[in-house]
Simulated scan of single mutants.
Amino acid sequence: MSGSEPAPVEDRRDSWEGPVPIPSGANETFWEATLEGELLYQRCEECGTSQLYPRAVCTGCGTTDPPFETSEGVGTVYSYTVCHVPGEPGFSDRTPYAVAAVALEEGPRLLALLDCDPEAVEVGMPLEVTFWQVSEEAAIPVFVPR
């Protein structure tokens, strides 16, 4: 996902058995963009704080409705865990799997599923976003090695 080029969106609606996001309020714009292969984050115009997941207020200064910007969709593994016991319904066929705190180049971090061999994951590993469409309203960001 470089420049204005969207990331791939793979339709997983028929096979996904995990949790499904329900867009509402401050996160509706975020989830709409995922269906188009875009990863959005918020950057406050008042204090410069960047944040993800979407919120109605800036976590830095409390300004309401911080605007969205489009991420390049690249970052690195900040921290991770390998799950050997499924923590959510729909993940039993996936174990073991890796979940990482991904540090985006723009600054914010988000927790995301990694689509790769969990034994290959390491802190600092470069990643890029892809999306799995899991409903008519949302595609979840999933990261793969760059």
Rank of each mutant, 00 (worst) to 15 (best):
T76N: 01
G25C: 07
R94W: 07
Y80P: 01
V99L: 15
C47Y: 05
E105T: 13
A56E: 09
A33G: 13
F143N: 00
P6C: 12
A98H: 01
C47S: 11
F131S: 11
G75L: 00
T64Y: 05
W132R: 13
G73N: 01
F91P: 02
A56Y: 06
A138F: 09
E122A: 10
M1R: 13
R43M: 06
A7V: 07
V74S: 11
I140T: 08
E119M: 03
A98I: 02
G3C: 10
A112F: 00
D117G: 00
L110M: 15
E119W: 01
E106L: 14
E122W: 05
S71W: 04
E137V: 07
G3P: 06
A103K: 13
S24T: 09
L113F: 10
W132P: 00
V144I: 13
C58W: 08
A33R: 03
E45V: 05
S92D: 15
V134W: 08
W16N: 04
Q42L: 10
T29K: 14
A138G: 08
Q133E: 15
E38S: 14
G124L: 09
R146L: 10
A101K: 06
E45Y: 04
T70A: 14
F30D: 11
G90D: 04
V20I: 15
C44T: 06
P108I: 02
T76I: 08
L113M: 12
L39P: 02
T29G: 14
C58K: 09
G3T: 05
N27D: 15
T34M: 13
G75H: 02
T63D: 09
G87K: 07
E69S: 14
E72N: 02
L104R: 01
V144A: 03
G18L: 10
S2Q: 14
E5P: 00
E36A: 15
T34L: 08
P67H: 06
T64N: 05
A100C: 00
P86S: 14
F68D: 04
P86Y: 01
V9S: 11
V74F: 11
V142W: 13
V85K: 15
R109I: 12
A101G: 09
V85N: 10
F143L: 01
L40V: 12
D93Y: 04
A101I: 12
A7E: 12
V123C: 09
T34I: 06
A120Y: 01
P118R: 01
P23N: 04
V144Y: 05
S92W: 11
L39K: 03
G87C: 09
C58L: 06
G3F: 07
P23F: 02
P21E: 03
F91G: 11
G62T: 03
E105Y: 03
Y53A: 12
S2M: 07
R12P: 03
C58V: 05
T130D: 08
A139Q: 12
V121I: 12
W132T: 00
F30G: 05
V20L: 07
V20R: 15
Q51P: 03
E128L: 07
E69K: 15
F143H: 00
